[in-house]
Simulated scan of single mutants.
Amino acid sequence: MSNALSLLQQRHSAPSRQLGEPAPDAATLRALLEAAIRVPDHGKLVPFRLIELRGDDKLKFGAQLAERAIRRDPNLPESKREKERFRYTFAPLVIVVVARLDDEAGIPEIEQKLCAGNVAYNILLGAYALGFGAQWLTGWAAYDPEVASLLNLAKNECVVGFVHIGTPQAEIPDRDRPALDDLLSQWKA
Rank of each mutant, 00 (worst) to 15 (best):
L7C: 06
Q9N: 12
Q10C: 04
S16Q: 12
Q18M: 14
G20L: 06
E21C: 03
P22F: 10
P24D: 00
A26Y: 04
A26D: 10
A27E: 12
T28H: 09
R30F: 06
A31Y: 02
L33Y: 01
E34W: 00
E34V: 08
A36T: 08
I37Q: 13
P40A: 13
P40G: 12
D41M: 06
L45H: 06
L45A: 05
V46A: 15
F48K: 03
E52K: 15
R54V: 14
R54C: 11
G55Y: 08
G55V: 01
D57E: 14
K60A: 15
K60M: 13
K60Y: 04
G62N: 04
A63E: 13
A63V: 02
Q64H: 09
L65Y: 01
L65F: 01
L65H: 00
A66V: 03
E67S: 12
E67M: 09
R68P: 01
A69C: 04
I70C: 04
R71G: 05
D73E: 12
L76I: 02
P77Y: 12
E78I: 07
S79V: 14
K80H: 13
R81W: 06
R81N: 02
E82H: 11
E84F: 09
F86D: 00
R87P: 00
R87L: 02
Y88A: 10
A91N: 05
A91L: 08
P92Q: 02
L93C: 07
I95H: 00
V98M: 01
A99E: 01
A99L: 05
A99R: 10
A99Q: 05
A99F: 03
R100D: 12
L101F: 04
D102Y: 09
E104Q: 14
E104Y: 07
G106H: 10
G106F: 07
I110A: 09
E111M: 13
K113L: 15
K113S: 04
L114R: 13
L114M: 14
C115R: 01
C115H: 05
C115L: 06
A116Y: 07
G117H: 03
G117D: 05
V119I: 02
Y121R: 01
N122H: 12
N122R: 12
I123M: 09
I123F: 06
L125D: 13
L125G: 07
G126W: 00
A127I: 09
A127H: 06
A127M: 10
A127V: 10
Y128T: 14
Y128R: 15
A129K: 09
L130T: 05
L130D: 14
G131V: 03
G131S: 08
G133I: 09
G133K: 07
Q135K: 08
W136S: 04
W136F: 07
L137N: 11
L137E: 05
W140F: 10
W140K: 08
Y143V: 02
Y143C: 02
P145W: 10
L150C: 00
A154T: 11
E157K: 02
V160F: 03
V160S: 02
G161N: 03
G161E: 04
H164D: 00
I165H: 02
G166M: 08
G166D: 01
Q169E: 11
A170G: 06
I172H: 08
P173D: 15
P173T: 11
D174G: 15
R175Q: 11
D176V: 14
D176T: 15
P178K: 09
L180H: 09
L180Y: 07
D181Y: 00
L183N: 10
K188S: 14
A189V: 10
